[in-house]
Amino acid sequence: MTATLPSETEAVIVPRRGGRRVRPPRRPGLLKFGYWWWALPGILMVLAIHYVATTVGGFFAFTNWTGIGEFDFVGFDNFRKILADPTKIAALGNTLFLAFGSVILSNVAGLGIAIGLNRVMKTRYILRTLFFMPVVLSPLATSYIWKFIFQFDGPVNILLRSVGLGELARPWLADPTWAIWTVLIVVVWQNTGFAMVIYMAGLASVPVEIEEAAAIDGANLWQRFWHITLPSIRPAIAIATTLGLVNGLRIFDQIMALTGGGPANATATLATEMYKQAFSLGNFGYGAALAVLLTVIILFFAVVQQRVGRGRNAED
């Protein structure tokens, strides 16, 4: 079980190398499985909606098209404009901050809950259902609840005032320094259950005998976690962090519901800026350039993350 798990989990992002899988013997001509053209609709849809659209989008990033009429080639002008604009650099910083912050916090919290709920707990399945609940709800809908919680006369400030910390009370989402942290809390709250479920599945594959043997040999809780649990759940860590990072970099819904990018662009991300430029202001070319930047960043981190994960597996 443990021997096959890494390769199975890896397969989400890493293409399988040829020849690793032993195919069942076939007698050509005697037995056929479907027709090759059954795959055509699927291939065409993916080609059109993913590859052609992305390529055309990449093309428009080098133009000044406004969405209608003529356009000119402007070379790398759009990208130069992005790099010269402090608000876009700040949006890039916010995107990375929210992506990495949410991945780290929700994975630590998710792993903690998963380990806590592992094994002996009697009500672990009910607790798992409760902690997972925010994951299935729409980010837009849950963000509105948090907007209320963090507003100036909302529950957070009432609690602060009631324990005598009234001077800390502030309009959290309208505060240029604190707004981004508030968004981070909401994102972490929503993603923790997802990380927890991946880790619970990973922990189920940790052999209990080894852990018991280590405990008998005198290994303490931390040693058992560091030397037995953690190495066994590496594939789960790779999956949870990669998916969390890719989704974190695209963050859009929560920002739109909580702050709309404000106050004064303090919580704008690449996705919200791209939406604003391409669809609100009609700068299709410039918006496409922002999208290219976002795509490159996402692919870069997906590949890096995968390299790191694979390097660790090779060591084993």
Binding site: A39, I43, Y51, A53, T54, A291
Partner: peptide, 30 residues
């Protein structure tokens, strides 16, 4: 089920598309 070589290439095509973000394609698709 296919043992032909193209099926492996197509499989990779789909794998890459899973990670490819949709934002860039949104404008042309629209």
């Amino acid at each position: 089920r296919s043992t032909r070589r193209w099926s492996r290439g197509v499989y990779y095509l789909f794998l890459i598309a899973i990670v490819l973000p949709t934002q860039l394609g949104t404008v042309p698709l629209y």
